[in-house]
Nucleic acid binder design. Structure first.
Lengths: 141, 141
DNA sequence: ATCAATTAGTTGACTATTCAACTAATTTTA
DNA sequence: TAAAATTAGTTGAATAGTCAACTAATTGAT
């Protein structure tokens, strides 16, 4: 009889596998992105021009991580750093034409796949799962 | 009104925060380990002498990751690689005295903390969360 | 108004992770 | 049995993430 695995262990394993499969899916479709870049792009597709610290806060990441992901995205020509005129400390991240256009390529590939992973559960079960995960995140912050 | 965040996003954020807090807790207690090393040690504390590929399979990681984590653990004097006499390709990972002794230091620090994060939920909700995560892992494999 | 404290972003060191290419050992197959 | 295929582990390149120390800009306090 297996003991209930700790939720933290399940989370760690799930994330590793998510990354693998998402990166493989993107590669299959010849999209030169990593799953982390997609996470950042999703925020920017909703509203671009955010500064790096805002991205860090939204994604619960260190600002140094964001510096480096943005750097890699800049190398691929997806985003640009724009100086903030009202506060020279800030750098606003804007999408290039290419970064904007990728939305129509990426979402139809990834979203149906992501949704299919939870399709066997009803809304109540998914809500419970989200509630547990959100509570964990809240308490860890 | 906030839309339900995708479970994959919650998982990614939760894991990052878990790592941060676990590493901070370990540092506070002057335990020179990372959260990933603890994950590997938990497996070895249950049964040592596993080969690297077994660790990789159990933790759903690439064997190259295991090579490198084991290397870092060896540097800290926690484990040793032992040649398998019946199959020279395998390296069995055994605990040093120090690696074994850490169990009594680490678990009393981490486990109450990890359990406290889900203490507000009843078993039914936690079971639903585990079921969703396990299903995701199974389908991603 | 000046000096101290805070905030945004970068950099370098370190760990973790994967992939692809590689070596060595074992197993399968023809 | 000899050659081919598989399996275990390592290595180097790439991305991602953190921390601590740093610079530059802004805000606050006296």
């Amino acid at each position: 009889m297996d003991q209930s695995p700790r939720i933290s262990l399940l989370i760690s394993q799930a994330l590793g596998l998510y990354r693998l499969r998402i990166n493989a899916l993107l590669a299959q479709h010849h999209i030169d992105l990593t799953s982390e870049m997609v996470t950042v792009l999703r925020v920017l597709w909703q509203r671009e021009g955010r500064k790096q610290q805002e991205l860090a806060d939204l994604l619960h990441k260190d600002k140094a991580s964001i510096t480096k992901v943005i750097h890699n995205m800049e190398k691929r020509g997806l985003v640009a750093r724009v100086a903030d005129e009202t506060d020279a400390r800030n750098k606003k991240i804007v999408l290039t034409q290419q970064g904007q256009a990728l939305k129509k390529e990426v979402l139809p590939v990834l979203d149906p796949f992501l949704d299919s992973l939870t399709a066997d559960f009803d809304e109540k079960e998914l809500a419970a799962a989200r509630a547990v995960l959100s509570a964990i995140i809240r308490q860890l912050q």
